Simulated scan of single mutants.
Amino acid sequence: MRTMIALLLPMALAVIASAQTLKSTTYIEPAKSFLLGGGQPGAFSVKGRNAGSVPVTVFIERAGKRDSLVTLAPGANLDAEFPAKAMTVFRNESNGVLATLTLTVRGNTSDLGMRYEPAKR
């Protein structure tokens, strides 16, 4: 019995560690994008709200191909699932106003990269 517990405990801890929740208020400069994910081994979900005054377009990028999901008007909500290795891209559509998002990310957040880049138009 002790051997079984010793074997199962590390697996249970790995599952708990990989299924975490991240909460963030994210600011995106004008004409920039915030990139979330891309290297994580498992799926994750994003719930969020455009808490700012400018539209934010959300994309999914898989295998180098970027597809538009939705443009969030100010006050609009997002509830989306993303597969392993997918990247979520939030693009500030404004040329002069800071975008503000409140985000909750759940699921496999191990190796979940986060960075900014100039917006690709």
Rank of each mutant, 00 (worst) to 15 (best):
Q40L: 05
M4L: 14
A86D: 09
G64S: 12
A12K: 03
P41G: 11
A19Y: 03
L9D: 05
G113F: 07
K65H: 07
F90M: 11
T71E: 12
P55H: 10
T102H: 13
E93M: 15
P30L: 01
A63M: 00
A84Y: 00
A84W: 01
F44A: 08
N95R: 12
F44T: 00
S53T: 15
L8S: 09
Q20F: 03
R2P: 00
V54F: 12
M114P: 00
V105K: 01
R49I: 12
R106C: 05
L101F: 10
L69C: 06
T104D: 01
R2L: 13
M114H: 08
Q20M: 06
T3Q: 15
I28V: 14
S94P: 14
R66G: 05
N108Q: 09
T100A: 15
T109K: 04
A73E: 14
G96N: 13
I16N: 07
I5W: 08
M114A: 15
P10F: 12
R121A: 12
L7K: 10
V97L: 08
D111S: 12
T71D: 13
F82A: 10
Q40D: 06
E117Q: 14
G107P: 00
T71Y: 07
V70Q: 10
G37H: 04
N95P: 02
R2W: 04
A19V: 02
L9P: 00
R115A: 10
Y116N: 00
M4Q: 10
G64K: 04
V58N: 04
G75D: 07
V46P: 07
T88R: 04
